Amino acid sequence: MTELIDKAGGLLPSCRPLQLSGQLAAGGLLLAGAAWIARGVWEARLALAGEPAAGPPDQGEGVHRPLNALEDSYHFVTALGGGAVVLCALLFIAWLWRVRDIARDLSGQPPKYAGLWVYLGWFVPLINLWFPRGIVVDAFRRAVPGRRQPVSVDVWWTLWVIGMLSGVGIVARDSTDEIIARAYTEVWPLLASDAAVVGAAVAGAFAVRAVTGALVERLRQAGAPQPV
């Protein structure tokens, strides 16, 4: 059986795909967090090594000096981190779609946010400050009415916004070479932003597990036989 029968005789999704999707999304978040830890370690190494006598990699007016071994390895670490973030995003959005659909099935009501915002909500300025969290909260409240949303959801989103708005974290405005130059001269803002990103990843994993667990419990209750 891939579906459960609810108390009204309707069909509800199975718990197993939701559980697997939640595990993958939480794992993707932790992987992205680990990648950002590595990034912070390399930035600290750059700060300890000090800026070379030749100056920063980007020397202005389109002139770039050859990278040393440490700078080159930082490029590699940031590229791996970017790949981890893309994988995390795909897994998280897949989980969010499933949660949104299950909440609709359980409540019998359409979601508050149109489906296109599951994607665009992360990229449209200003809207990306609250829509993604709103989609999670809306799905949770519809699926588990009367139950308070997990604290981890708010912690995750607060740290995510800090990392996003810092300009050196999740959505960096500087190029990798410019970030290397900043690591040589002002590493602490970089490390603070990295800490926010890592914290968001860990809190996000807890939020995914909490929301998934609540929906699985609700699905099982909805599919349980009525007492005689």
Rank of each mutant, 00 (worst) to 15 (best):
T2L: 13
L4D: 08
L4P: 11
I5F: 05
I5D: 09
K7Q: 15
L11Y: 15
L12P: 04
P17F: 00
L18R: 01
L20M: 14
S21P: 08
Q23E: 14
Q23T: 09
A25T: 01
G33H: 00
G33D: 06
A34F: 13
I37W: 10
G40M: 12
W42N: 10
A47I: 05
L48G: 07
G50Y: 02
G50Q: 07
E51G: 00
G55R: 04
P56D: 14
D58I: 00
D58C: 02
D58V: 02
Q59V: 02
G60N: 12
G60S: 09
G62E: 14
V63I: 15
H64R: 13
H64F: 15
R65S: 09
A69C: 09
D72K: 01
Y74T: 08
F76R: 07
F76L: 12
T78L: 05
A79Y: 08
G83V: 08
A84F: 06
V85W: 03
L87W: 12
C88M: 15
C88S: 11
A89Q: 04
L90R: 07
F92K: 04
A94E: 12
V99N: 05
D101M: 07
D101C: 06
I102H: 14
R104K: 14
R104C: 15
Q109P: 06
P110C: 14
P111G: 12
Y113R: 07
G115W: 13
L116M: 12
W117R: 00
V118Q: 10
L120S: 07
L120T: 11
W122I: 11
F123S: 13
V124E: 08
L126N: 07
N128M: 09
F131N: 08
P132R: 01
R133D: 13
G134H: 03
G134Q: 14
I135G: 01
D138C: 01
R141P: 05
G146Y: 01
G146N: 05
G146V: 00
Q149D: 10
Q149C: 03
Q149M: 03
P150I: 02
V151E: 12
V151A: 09
V151N: 07
S152T: 13
V153A: 15
D154A: 02
T158P: 05
T158A: 10
W160P: 03
V161L: 15
I162K: 02
I162F: 09
S166V: 05
G167D: 07
V171R: 12
R173W: 12
S175E: 14
D177M: 01
E178C: 02
I179C: 11
A181I: 02
A183V: 03
T185D: 15
E186A: 07
E186K: 03
E186R: 05
V187E: 10
W188N: 06
W188E: 10
L190R: 01
L190A: 00
S193P: 06
D194K: 01
A196Q: 06
A196L: 08
A196S: 13
V197M: 05
A201R: 02
A201I: 02
A201Q: 04
A205C: 11
A205I: 06
A207Y: 13
R209E: 09
A210F: 04
G213V: 06
A214H: 01
L215P: 04
E217T: 05
L219I: 01
R220I: 13
Q221P: 09
Q221W: 11
G223F: 03
Q226Y: 12
P227A: 13
